[in-house]
Simulated scan of single mutants.
Amino acid sequence: MAVVDVSEELKSLSSTMGSIEAVLDLEKLRADIAVLEEQAAAPSLWDDPEAAQKITSKLSHLQAEVRKAETLRGRIDDLAVLFELAEEMDDPDTLAEAEAELTSVRKALDEMEVRTLLSGEYDEREALVNIRAEAGGVDASDFAERLQRMYLRWAERHGYSTEVYETSYAEEAGIKSTTFVVKAPYAYGTLSVEQGTHRLVRISPFDNQGRRQTSFAGVEILPVVESSDHVEIDESELRVDVYRASGPGGQGVNTTDSAVRITHLPTGIVVSCQNERSQIQNKASAMNVLQAKLLERQRQEERAKMDALKDSGSSWGNQMRSYVLHPYQMVKDLRTEFEVGNPQSVLDGEIDGFLEAGIRWRKQQEK
Protein backbone atom coordinates (compact mmCIF):
# COMPACT_ATOMS: atom_id res chain seq x y z
CA MET A 1 0.00 0.00 0.00
CA ALA A 2 1.42 3.39 -1.03
CA VAL A 3 2.33 5.88 1.70
CA VAL A 4 -0.10 8.50 0.35
CA ASP A 5 -2.90 5.90 0.31
CA VAL A 6 -2.14 4.98 3.92
CA SER A 7 -2.15 8.62 4.97
CA GLU A 8 -5.58 9.22 3.42
CA GLU A 9 -6.92 5.97 4.89
CA LEU A 10 -5.73 6.90 8.38
CA LYS A 11 -7.31 10.37 8.07
CA SER A 12 -10.59 8.73 7.08
CA LEU A 13 -10.42 6.30 10.01
CA SER A 14 -9.64 9.11 12.44
CA SER A 15 -12.55 11.18 11.09
CA THR A 16 -14.96 8.24 11.43
CA MET A 17 -13.72 7.64 14.97
CA GLY A 18 -14.32 11.31 15.77
CA SER A 19 -17.92 11.00 14.60
CA ILE A 20 -18.41 7.90 16.74
CA GLU A 21 -16.93 9.62 19.79
CA ALA A 22 -19.31 12.55 19.27
CA VAL A 23 -22.35 10.26 19.07
CA LEU A 24 -21.26 8.24 22.11
CA ASP A 25 -20.58 11.49 24.02
CA LEU A 26 -17.66 10.11 26.01
CA GLU A 27 -17.68 12.96 28.52
CA LYS A 28 -21.29 12.21 29.43
CA LEU A 29 -20.48 8.50 29.67
CA ARG A 30 -17.62 9.26 32.05
CA ALA A 31 -19.92 11.44 34.17
CA ASP A 32 -22.53 8.63 34.24
CA ILE A 33 -19.80 6.18 35.28
CA ALA A 34 -18.81 8.42 38.19
CA VAL A 35 -22.43 8.50 39.42
CA LEU A 36 -22.82 4.73 39.08
CA GLU A 37 -19.48 4.10 40.84
CA GLU A 38 -20.74 6.17 43.76
CA GLN A 39 -24.00 4.17 43.85
CA ALA A 40 -22.10 0.88 43.59
CA ALA A 41 -19.92 1.84 46.55
CA ALA A 42 -22.91 2.45 48.83
CA PRO A 43 -23.00 0.02 51.82
CA SER A 44 -26.74 -0.56 51.27
CA LEU A 45 -26.30 -1.50 47.60
CA TRP A 46 -27.25 -5.16 47.97
CA ASP A 47 -30.25 -4.50 50.21
CA ASP A 48 -32.14 -4.57 46.90
CA PRO A 49 -30.39 -7.30 44.83
CA GLU A 50 -32.36 -6.57 41.64
CA ALA A 51 -31.53 -2.85 41.71
CA ALA A 52 -27.91 -3.66 42.61
CA GLN A 53 -27.65 -6.01 39.65
CA LYS A 54 -28.90 -3.29 37.29
CA ILE A 55 -26.45 -0.72 38.69
CA THR A 56 -23.42 -3.01 38.48
CA SER A 57 -24.43 -4.29 35.03
CA LYS A 58 -24.89 -0.77 33.63
CA LEU A 59 -21.63 0.37 35.24
CA SER A 60 -19.75 -2.54 33.71
CA HIS A 61 -21.29 -1.87 30.29
CA LEU A 62 -20.48 1.87 30.30
CA GLN A 63 -16.92 1.22 31.46
CA ALA A 64 -16.49 -1.27 28.63
CA GLU A 65 -17.93 1.24 26.10
CA VAL A 66 -15.49 3.96 27.14
CA ARG A 67 -12.57 1.54 27.32
CA LYS A 68 -13.38 0.19 23.85
CA ALA A 69 -13.53 3.72 22.37
CA GLU A 70 -10.29 4.81 24.06
CA THR A 71 -8.49 1.64 22.97
CA LEU A 72 -9.65 2.01 19.37
CA ARG A 73 -8.59 5.66 19.26
CA GLY A 74 -5.14 4.59 20.54
CA ARG A 75 -4.87 1.88 17.89
CA ILE A 76 -5.71 4.36 15.11
CA ASP A 77 -3.07 6.79 16.40
CA ASP A 78 -0.49 3.98 16.66
CA LEU A 79 -1.11 2.87 13.07
CA ALA A 80 0.62 5.96 11.68
CA VAL A 81 3.74 5.18 13.75
CA LEU A 82 3.67 1.53 12.66
CA PHE A 83 3.52 2.40 8.94
CA GLU A 84 6.28 5.01 9.35
CA LEU A 85 8.45 2.41 11.06
CA ALA A 86 7.82 -0.11 8.27
CA GLU A 87 8.83 2.49 5.66
CA GLU A 88 11.98 3.55 7.52
CA MET A 89 13.09 -0.05 8.09
CA ASP A 90 11.99 -1.15 4.60
CA ASP A 91 10.87 -4.34 6.33
CA PRO A 92 8.19 -6.51 4.64
CA ASP A 93 7.31 -8.23 7.94
CA THR A 94 6.66 -4.94 9.73
CA LEU A 95 4.63 -3.72 6.74
CA ALA A 96 2.56 -6.92 6.79
CA GLU A 97 1.98 -6.44 10.52
CA ALA A 98 0.85 -2.84 9.94
CA GLU A 99 -1.53 -3.85 7.14
CA ALA A 100 -3.02 -6.64 9.27
CA GLU A 101 -3.60 -4.16 12.11
CA LEU A 102 -5.20 -1.72 9.64
CA THR A 103 -7.67 -4.43 8.54
CA SER A 104 -8.41 -5.29 12.17
CA VAL A 105 -8.99 -1.61 13.07
CA ARG A 106 -11.35 -1.16 10.10
CA LYS A 107 -13.45 -4.12 11.32
CA ALA A 108 -13.52 -2.85 14.92
CA LEU A 109 -14.51 0.61 13.70
CA ASP A 110 -17.38 -0.82 11.62
CA GLU A 111 -18.66 -2.73 14.66
CA MET A 112 -18.52 0.35 16.87
CA GLU A 113 -20.23 2.47 14.21
CA VAL A 114 -23.15 0.01 14.19
CA ARG A 115 -23.54 0.50 17.95
CA THR A 116 -24.10 4.24 17.37
CA LEU A 117 -27.06 3.41 15.10
CA LEU A 118 -28.98 1.97 18.06
CA SER A 119 -30.87 5.08 19.09
CA GLY A 120 -34.47 3.82 19.23
CA GLU A 121 -36.69 4.41 22.25
CA TYR A 122 -36.10 0.93 23.70
CA ASP A 123 -32.84 -0.04 21.96
CA GLU A 124 -30.75 0.04 25.13
CA ARG A 125 -33.03 -2.49 26.88
CA GLU A 126 -32.46 -6.16 27.53
CA ALA A 127 -34.29 -8.46 25.10
CA LEU A 128 -37.05 -11.03 25.44
CA VAL A 129 -36.82 -13.60 22.66
CA ASN A 130 -39.84 -15.72 21.68
CA ILE A 131 -39.41 -18.51 19.13
CA ARG A 132 -42.23 -20.71 17.85
CA ALA A 133 -42.40 -23.55 15.35
CA GLU A 134 -44.60 -22.73 12.36
CA ALA A 135 -45.37 -24.68 9.15
CA GLY A 136 -43.33 -27.82 8.56
CA GLY A 137 -44.33 -30.32 11.20
CA VAL A 138 -41.53 -32.02 13.13
CA ASP A 139 -38.89 -30.28 10.97
CA ALA A 140 -40.27 -26.90 12.09
CA SER A 141 -40.07 -27.98 15.74
CA ASP A 142 -36.48 -29.11 15.24
CA PHE A 143 -35.67 -25.83 13.44
CA ALA A 144 -37.16 -23.78 16.30
CA GLU A 145 -34.89 -25.60 18.75
CA ARG A 146 -31.86 -24.95 16.54
CA LEU A 147 -32.73 -21.23 16.43
CA GLN A 148 -32.99 -21.18 20.23
CA ARG A 149 -29.51 -22.70 20.45
CA MET A 150 -28.22 -20.21 17.84
CA TYR A 151 -29.27 -17.17 19.89
CA LEU A 152 -28.13 -18.67 23.20
CA ARG A 153 -24.72 -19.48 21.65
CA TRP A 154 -24.51 -15.93 20.25
CA ALA A 155 -25.14 -14.55 23.74
CA GLU A 156 -22.58 -16.94 25.22
CA ARG A 157 -19.96 -15.86 22.67
CA HIS A 158 -20.43 -12.26 23.79
CA GLY A 159 -20.46 -13.05 27.51
CA TYR A 160 -24.13 -12.10 27.91
CA SER A 161 -26.15 -13.94 30.53
CA THR A 162 -29.46 -15.51 29.57
CA GLU A 163 -32.43 -17.01 31.37
CA VAL A 164 -34.93 -19.39 29.80
CA TYR A 165 -38.41 -18.62 31.08
CA GLU A 166 -40.30 -21.39 29.34
CA THR A 167 -39.87 -24.11 26.73
CA SER A 168 -42.71 -26.19 25.33
CA TYR A 169 -41.29 -29.41 23.87
CA ALA A 170 -42.73 -31.10 20.79
CA GLU A 171 -43.68 -34.77 20.96
CA GLU A 172 -41.26 -36.23 18.41
CA ALA A 173 -38.34 -33.77 18.39
CA GLY A 174 -37.54 -30.12 18.93
CA ILE A 175 -39.77 -27.53 20.56
CA LYS A 176 -43.15 -25.93 19.97
CA SER A 177 -42.05 -22.62 21.50
CA THR A 178 -39.61 -21.00 23.90
CA THR A 179 -39.17 -17.69 25.70
CA PHE A 180 -35.87 -16.46 27.12
CA VAL A 181 -34.24 -13.19 28.09
CA VAL A 182 -30.84 -11.89 26.98
CA LYS A 183 -29.49 -9.78 29.84
CA ALA A 184 -27.24 -7.22 28.22
CA PRO A 185 -27.54 -3.50 27.49
CA TYR A 186 -28.66 -2.88 23.90
CA ALA A 187 -29.65 -6.54 23.47
CA TYR A 188 -33.09 -5.44 22.26
CA GLY A 189 -31.77 -2.91 19.75
CA THR A 190 -29.27 -5.43 18.44
CA LEU A 191 -31.56 -8.45 18.20
CA SER A 192 -34.73 -6.63 17.12
CA VAL A 193 -33.66 -6.94 13.46
CA GLU A 194 -34.07 -10.73 13.86
CA GLN A 195 -37.84 -10.46 14.17
CA GLY A 196 -39.80 -12.26 11.47
CA THR A 197 -40.13 -15.67 9.85
CA HIS A 198 -37.01 -17.81 9.39
CA ARG A 199 -37.07 -20.51 6.68
CA LEU A 200 -35.07 -23.76 6.58
CA VAL A 201 -34.56 -25.91 3.46
CA ARG A 202 -32.86 -29.29 3.89
CA ILE A 203 -33.14 -33.05 3.43
CA SER A 204 -35.37 -33.95 6.35
CA PRO A 205 -33.75 -36.29 8.89
CA PHE A 206 -37.30 -37.24 9.89
CA ASP A 207 -38.39 -38.36 6.40
CA ASN A 208 -37.58 -42.01 5.74
CA GLN A 209 -37.68 -41.31 1.99
CA GLY A 210 -34.98 -38.61 2.34
CA ARG A 211 -37.02 -35.88 0.67
CA ARG A 212 -36.25 -32.18 0.79
CA GLN A 213 -38.36 -30.31 3.34
CA THR A 214 -39.05 -26.61 3.82
CA SER A 215 -39.99 -25.55 7.35
CA PHE A 216 -40.57 -22.27 9.14
CA ALA A 217 -40.09 -20.77 12.60
CA GLY A 218 -41.19 -17.37 13.88
CA VAL A 219 -38.95 -15.11 15.97
CA GLU A 220 -40.35 -12.28 18.11
CA ILE A 221 -38.04 -9.84 19.92
CA LEU A 222 -39.42 -7.65 22.72
CA PRO A 223 -37.82 -5.03 25.00
CA VAL A 224 -37.80 -6.00 28.66
CA VAL A 225 -40.32 -3.89 30.56
CA GLU A 226 -38.98 -1.48 33.17
CA SER A 227 -40.72 0.16 36.12
CA SER A 228 -40.95 3.45 34.21
CA ASP A 229 -43.15 1.85 31.52
CA HIS A 230 -46.88 2.39 31.81
CA VAL A 231 -48.47 -0.97 31.12
CA GLU A 232 -51.63 -1.29 33.17
CA ILE A 233 -53.05 -4.79 33.57
CA ASP A 234 -56.40 -5.39 35.24
CA GLU A 235 -56.14 -8.58 37.31
CA SER A 236 -59.81 -9.31 36.54
CA GLU A 237 -58.86 -9.62 32.86
CA LEU A 238 -56.40 -12.43 33.54
CA ARG A 239 -56.91 -16.18 33.71
CA VAL A 240 -54.11 -17.86 35.66
CA ASP A 241 -53.61 -21.62 35.32
CA VAL A 242 -51.03 -23.63 37.25
CA TYR A 243 -49.66 -26.98 36.13
CA ARG A 244 -46.76 -29.32 36.63
CA ALA A 245 -43.60 -28.39 34.72
CA SER A 246 -42.19 -30.98 32.33
CA GLY A 247 -39.13 -31.49 30.22
CA PRO A 248 -38.26 -33.33 26.98
CA GLY A 249 -40.23 -36.54 26.52
CA GLY A 250 -42.67 -35.50 29.22
CA GLN A 251 -40.39 -36.48 32.09
CA GLY A 252 -41.22 -34.80 35.39
CA VAL A 253 -39.16 -31.82 36.37
CA ASN A 254 -41.22 -30.81 39.37
CA THR A 255 -43.45 -32.70 41.77
CA THR A 256 -45.65 -29.68 42.46
CA ASP A 257 -47.89 -27.50 40.30
CA SER A 258 -45.38 -24.64 40.07
CA ALA A 259 -45.57 -23.78 36.36
CA VAL A 260 -47.84 -20.83 35.53
CA ARG A 261 -49.80 -19.96 32.39
CA ILE A 262 -51.45 -16.54 32.15
CA THR A 263 -54.09 -15.64 29.54
CA HIS A 264 -54.85 -11.96 28.94
CA LEU A 265 -58.55 -12.24 28.05
CA PRO A 266 -59.04 -8.96 26.10
CA THR A 267 -56.19 -9.72 23.66
CA GLY A 268 -55.94 -13.51 23.88
CA ILE A 269 -52.21 -13.28 24.60
CA VAL A 270 -50.97 -16.37 26.46
CA VAL A 271 -47.66 -16.52 28.34
CA SER A 272 -46.17 -19.16 30.59
CA CYS A 273 -43.13 -19.76 32.78
CA GLN A 274 -41.83 -22.94 34.37
CA ASN A 275 -38.13 -22.36 35.00
CA GLU A 276 -38.46 -21.50 38.71
CA ARG A 277 -39.42 -23.96 41.45
CA SER A 278 -41.73 -21.42 43.09
CA GLN A 279 -45.18 -20.73 41.66
CA ILE A 280 -44.87 -17.11 42.85
CA GLN A 281 -41.58 -16.62 40.99
CA ASN A 282 -42.98 -18.21 37.83
CA LYS A 283 -46.02 -15.95 37.96
CA ALA A 284 -43.80 -12.87 38.37
CA SER A 285 -41.69 -13.90 35.35
CA ALA A 286 -44.81 -14.66 33.29
CA MET A 287 -46.24 -11.23 34.17
CA ASN A 288 -42.99 -9.61 32.95
CA VAL A 289 -43.35 -11.39 29.61
CA LEU A 290 -47.04 -10.38 29.37
CA GLN A 291 -46.17 -6.75 30.08
CA ALA A 292 -43.50 -6.84 27.36
CA LYS A 293 -45.99 -8.28 24.85
CA LEU A 294 -48.62 -5.67 25.72
CA LEU A 295 -46.02 -2.90 25.47
CA GLU A 296 -45.00 -4.16 22.02
CA ARG A 297 -48.68 -4.38 20.99
CA GLN A 298 -49.13 -0.78 22.09
CA ARG A 299 -46.06 0.26 20.07
CA GLN A 300 -47.30 -1.58 16.98
CA GLU A 301 -50.71 0.13 17.22
CA GLU A 302 -48.99 3.52 17.48
CA ARG A 303 -46.72 2.63 14.54
CA ALA A 304 -49.76 1.55 12.48
CA LYS A 305 -51.38 4.93 13.13
CA MET A 306 -48.20 6.70 12.03
CA ASP A 307 -47.97 4.53 8.90
CA ALA A 308 -51.58 5.38 8.09
CA LEU A 309 -50.83 9.08 8.47
CA LYS A 310 -47.80 8.71 6.20
CA ASP A 311 -49.92 6.64 3.76
CA SER A 312 -47.29 3.93 3.71
CA GLY A 313 -47.17 0.36 4.88
CA SER A 314 -44.58 -1.22 7.13
CA SER A 315 -41.15 -1.67 5.59
CA TRP A 316 -40.80 -5.01 7.37
CA GLY A 317 -41.38 -8.15 5.35
CA ASN A 318 -42.52 -11.18 7.29
CA GLN A 319 -40.06 -13.72 5.88
CA MET A 320 -36.60 -12.38 6.61
CA ARG A 321 -33.97 -15.13 6.34
CA SER A 322 -33.43 -18.42 4.54
CA TYR A 323 -31.17 -21.21 5.79
CA VAL A 324 -30.46 -23.57 2.88
CA LEU A 325 -28.67 -26.85 3.65
CA HIS A 326 -29.63 -28.62 0.40
CA PRO A 327 -28.99 -28.63 -2.57
CA TYR A 328 -26.35 -26.02 -1.68
CA GLN A 329 -25.13 -24.41 1.56
CA MET A 330 -26.12 -20.80 2.24
CA VAL A 331 -27.81 -18.51 4.74
CA LYS A 332 -29.22 -15.32 3.21
CA ASP A 333 -31.04 -12.33 4.66
CA LEU A 334 -33.87 -11.47 2.27
CA ARG A 335 -33.90 -7.76 3.22
CA THR A 336 -30.21 -6.85 3.26
CA GLU A 337 -28.96 -9.49 0.76
CA PHE A 338 -26.22 -10.34 3.29
CA GLU A 339 -25.28 -14.00 2.94
CA VAL A 340 -22.90 -16.60 4.36
CA GLY A 341 -21.87 -19.89 2.77
CA ASN A 342 -21.44 -21.75 6.06
CA PRO A 343 -24.86 -22.44 7.64
CA GLN A 344 -23.36 -24.48 10.48
CA SER A 345 -21.32 -21.51 11.75
CA VAL A 346 -24.47 -19.35 11.66
CA LEU A 347 -26.53 -21.94 13.54
CA ASP A 348 -23.66 -22.11 16.03
CA GLY A 349 -24.19 -18.45 16.92
CA GLU A 350 -22.01 -16.55 14.45
CA ILE A 351 -24.69 -14.05 13.43
CA ASP A 352 -22.94 -10.70 14.02
CA GLY A 353 -22.64 -10.05 10.27
CA PHE A 354 -26.42 -10.46 9.86
CA LEU A 355 -27.10 -8.25 12.89
CA GLU A 356 -24.83 -5.46 11.66
CA ALA A 357 -26.28 -5.59 8.13
CA GLY A 358 -29.80 -5.59 9.55
CA ILE A 359 -29.16 -2.59 11.80
CA ARG A 360 -27.66 -0.60 8.90
CA TRP A 361 -30.58 -1.62 6.63
CA ARG A 362 -33.12 -0.53 9.23
CA LYS A 363 -31.44 2.85 9.58
CA GLN A 364 -31.63 3.32 5.81
CA GLN A 365 -35.37 2.51 5.87
CA GLU A 366 -35.95 5.25 8.45
CA LYS A 367 -34.50 7.98 6.23
Rank of each mutant, 00 (worst) to 15 (best):
K28V: 10
T167Q: 09
V240R: 05
R303G: 00
R303W: 09
A108E: 14
V331F: 01
L222M: 10
Q39G: 06
E356S: 15
H230R: 15
Q148M: 15
H326C: 09
S12D: 12
I55Y: 07
W316C: 02
L238H: 07
D352G: 00
R67P: 07
W361Y: 12
D257Q: 10
G252Y: 15
E126S: 11
H61D: 13
A304C: 03
R199P: 08
V105E: 00
E124K: 14
L29Y: 06
D311W: 06
L59H: 10
L295I: 06
S215M: 01
D48L: 06
R299W: 10
G341I: 08
T162S: 08
K367D: 13
L347Y: 04
A184T: 07
R244S: 01
L85T: 15
L147E: 04
L294S: 04
N282V: 07
T179H: 04
I76K: 05
A40P: 02
R75P: 02
S44E: 15
G247A: 03
L79K: 06
G174S: 04
L82S: 13
D348Y: 00
G250H: 02
Y169Q: 05
A286Y: 00
T190H: 07
D77N: 12
Y186W: 09
R30L: 14
I269S: 02
E235D: 13
L59P: 06
D48Q: 08
R106V: 11
E97H: 10
A108G: 01
V225P: 00
L222E: 04
E171L: 09
L295A: 01
E171R: 08
I280D: 11
M89H: 11
E145D: 13
V331M: 01
A42G: 05
D307H: 15
T179E: 02
L290I: 02
A184C: 07
S215P: 08
Q39D: 11
E296Q: 14
D25R: 11
